[in-house]
């Protein structure tokens, strides 16, 4: 079973539909024990940075999520705002604390490009990656903020928009994507299937 963290601020119908198409069972949860112990957890994200960070604190999930993300053996997928929450803070919501898994601030695209970035763009694993998590492809983005520099100790992929930005990072079994794999056609579906390949029906 895939546990989806219910921050209450994300529209996750498309994600659920993607798991349904894969024949994967999913559950929406706010239960810290489940989020700690489950084999596969998704931190989804559509909505505002402050609202999502606030929801995590209100539900008392901050420590649980941080511990999980620092555990290389637990499969966790962070999507869009979920990826941005890995940073220390975001220009979107000054003064609001992110999860601080990576020592980076999330910044806004400059006004020299259209904001939000809305549409399909190329995602290319960085040549330095020892093991690319997925092949290069085209993904659907809907974001105004982004991670500019790759964090140390993570492998990453980049996308060109207002210069190059980090569109995905992974370390151990943690994968974070600025794009929406659930809206990225066959390529996105393939990525989700790869992430969920070890999910067993007996898992929490």
């Amino acid at each position: 079973m895939i546990q989806i963290i219910n921050t209450g601020v994300a529209n996750i119908r498309s994600l659920q539909a993607a798991f349904d198409r894969m024949g994967q069972l999913w559950n929406l949860t706010e239960d810290p024990a489940l989020i700690r112990d489950a084999s596969h957890v998704v931190l989804p994200g559509v909505g505002a940075y402050a609202a999502a960070a606030d929801a995590i604190d209100r539900l008392g999930l901050r420590e649980t999520i941080v511990d999980r993300l620092n555990d290389p053996d637990k499969s966790t997928l962070c999507i869009c705002l979920g990826m941005q929450l890995l940073g220390t803070s975001s220009e979107e919501s000054p003064g609001i604390r992110g999860l601080g898994i990576i020592d980076r601030q999330i910044t806004r695209f400059s006004d020299s490009v259209q904001v939000p970035q809305l549409g399909w763009n190329n995602v290319v694993p960085d040549p330095s990656c020892k093991q690319a998590c997925y092949r290069a492809g085209e993904a659907y983005f809907a974001n105004s903020f982004r991670l500019l520099d790759p964090p140390e100790g993570w492998e990453f992929a980049t996308t060109d928009y207002d210069g190059s930005f980090v569109s995905s990072i992974w370390r151990g079994k943690t994968l974070a994507c600025q794009f929406h794999p659930e809206l990225s056609g066959d390529w996105g579906q393939e990525l989700l299937e790869k992430w969920a390949v070890e999910v067993r029906s007996t898992d929490l």
């Binding site: 498309s14 349904d20 659907y140 929406h180 659930e182 056609g185 996105g188």
Partner: peptide, 9 residues
């Protein structure tokens, strides 16, 4: 429609 689609709607 959503069940079918892996692209934005």
């Amino acid at each position: 429609v959503r069940k079918q689609l892996s692209i934005p709607l």
